[in-house]
Amino acid sequence: MTGTTGYLLRKLGGALIVLFLLSVLVYLLFYVAPGDPAKLACGPRCNAEQLHQVRGQLGLDEPLLTRYLHFLAGLVTGRDYSTGTGVLHCPAPCFGLSYQNDQPVTALLAARLPVTASLALGSMVLWLLLGVGTGLLSALRRGGTTERVLTVLTLTGTATPVFITGLLLLMLFCATLQWLPFPSYVPLTEDPEQWAWNLLLPWTTLALLESAKYARLTRSSTLETLAEDHIRTFRAYGLPERTVIGRHALRGALPPVIALNAIDLGTMFGGAMLTETLFGLPGIGQLLVHSVRTVDLPVVVGAVLGIGTAVVLANALADVLYALADRRVTLT
């Protein structure tokens, strides 16, 4: 595989270009769009002199391009902000300081990452088991009652927004049956058992939604493979149906599922906003929603760019995984 390294480099290069474009877009949208960042940073009780001072601290009186370059430089080398009384250092990669509490955005995001990662990885295990299993079953039992029941279930799954599933699960398991605690995040390092116990509901909620998507994809992909000519070849050469499906049909059906999973995992790392808000989990998604409500622009920009990075890298990874899994794709 001589082309693999080049392929990977090209994919990475493409992802970097996309990230650069995204940073320009987001920067323009949030720092040039209507509304005065200085007024937001200064707060509601702010006189003209203070406003002018804040504008100077934030460098808002400089031309746009200079400001953007400062922003980019801050990402690479870090940045210092003078507050009038002292200097606040914001280490690289610096997205700026929160208007609310002057903390570096990067630190805020990093603090939230374990929560989001716990949620994402745990539910991924569930949705893969549930989704791929259901999809396979409905593809192999097609035409029967099993398939019809599964189709209705997956349709219901796709049509139910997470907050409905979540609320219903909460009502059932926390309020009525009282089997589970109302979820609150416990770090894995502190108490693994409580960690899992508390996250069980959020995991299930997310997994129910996602697994419906995976079930549909697995089913269609399996059926597509089963319709291919080489499946007929192996049947015509007397291979038992078990081997035909296990070795040949599955091998062809999985690449799209793997690729989709990489993308989804990236998106989940960006924060499952609805789930985190519903269950009060202090993850990245909840941070973003909170910052939007308080118009804390640096945090919003940092969160969007952070999430964007996760997603773009996940997409590149998905392409690579797909190409490696599906050897028919030529690496270009």
């Binding site: 291919e228 007929r232 192996f234 050469y237 599906d326």
Partner: peptide
């Protein structure tokens, strides 16, 4: 009977073989 007594050769040789497995392995499997 299929393959053992009577073996079939198909029209389109690209789609008639599994794209994911080595050709030798497919023959050995049969």
């Amino acid at each position: 009977l299929r393959g053992g007594t009577a073996a079939m050769i198909f029209q389109d040789p690209l789609s008639a073989l599994d794209p994911y497995h080595a050709i030798g392995d497919q023959i050995a499997e049969v």
